[in-house]
Design a protein around this nucleic acid. Sequence first.
DNA 1: CCTACCGATCGGTAGG
DNA 2: CCTACCGATCGGTAGG
Lengths: 210, 210
Amino acid sequence: MDSKDKRNFEKGEHVETRNAIIKTAHDLFMEYGYRSVSTRQIADLCGLTQPALYHHFTNKKELYIEVIRETIFKTQTAVQRILKRPQSLRERLQQYAYYMMLNHHEDLNQMFHDIEHQLDAASQAQIYQWWMNGYLMPVVAVFEEAAKEGKLQNQYRFGATPIDAAHFLLSLIKSSMEPSKFLKDSSKSRQEAAEEKSHMIVDVLLYGLS
Amino acid sequence: MDSKDKRNFEKGEHVETRNAIIKTAHDLFMEYGYRSVSTRQIADLCGLTQPALYHHFTNKKELYIEVIRETIFKTQTAVQRILKRPQSLRERLQQYAYYMMLNHHEDLNQMFHDIEHQLDAASQAQIYQWWMNGYLMPVVAVFEEAAKEGKLQNQYRFGATPIDAAHFLLSLIKSSMEPSKFLKDSSKSRQEAAEEKSHMIVDVLLYGLS
DNA sequence: CCTACCGATCGGTAGG
DNA sequence: CCTACCGATCGGTAGG
């Protein structure tokens, strides 16, 4: 190969290394939290020395922010596709909940806590902007559409806006993703459990318990 | 004072110091998380040197477990009193949600994450036992009672048990306690906001959005 | 309850 | 991308 091909090849390796770092950092940060994960842990799992990380990212916080950015944008793409399907409100919300349960783990609570306590105000504002566009607004739009079609007539009786509704749904999804320490139900696969839970959550939210 | 009085006095001071440590540690642990809080921070805020903490607690983890134990037991007492009042299901749940919103902050998610990742399995099991008795079962009992009286007829249609219902309620309460980064509503006091949110949550849970 | 101090680990830098 | 290393901070101990 000539020098041009060699450069491209090396650049490709550089990008692959960067992606490996982001994936490893994602898994560790989301499970253990920002402070509990050391740059040496990340580097070791990628087969690198710790100072090598600083060739790809200026510091630990920049790496963390990049992890969050990629996570939010990937989710946004998938979620918008699901919520635009020509199906009923109930079916779309169920599929949305199912997707979130399978593809996110218990990471959202941890992520928000870290953002609030480990990042500066400017980074927080930027991430909340990404979060609103990627996670919240697609769901809000679905509830607004349903409200216009008169399918959420109780909205004003309870004082619950479409934004509240989206928060409720995300809250129920988050709690369903927590490792259920109380009822270990190992008889079902992850997919089966997520499908069952997604149906239950949406039905409770739409129709109530009583 | 004779020597006996002096001993009692000194023992009283010892207890007061211990309580001050627990209160300070509670506030710091719940806000920033177990790993992010150093024993020196706790000691400084109590007017002590860091090694002095080890006169009251064998190590950082023992202190953390004691913080959790006292928190759960105090909540258990208050919650049981509220849920035994001779009022409707809706009213009792509203008052329960209101109490939790005012007296707990955003600490529960942080607490559970720390328990899972920073403590050994034996400590986890002990704390989950406390949690079930103190937090979950009183709410489960209320839903079971309502189910027997036929007030939750949709229970089997959705597959939602009283335990699920209690988890849903706690989940909605937890998310309502999160600092709402999205809708800063500083026009209302904490009490007013908690009252409004507790009503909204219980109504959505009982009657649904549509 | 203090002073003095320990080994371990952290995020990050220098220099190649 | 490596070796070598820095100052800061951590939880915990010794000894009084």
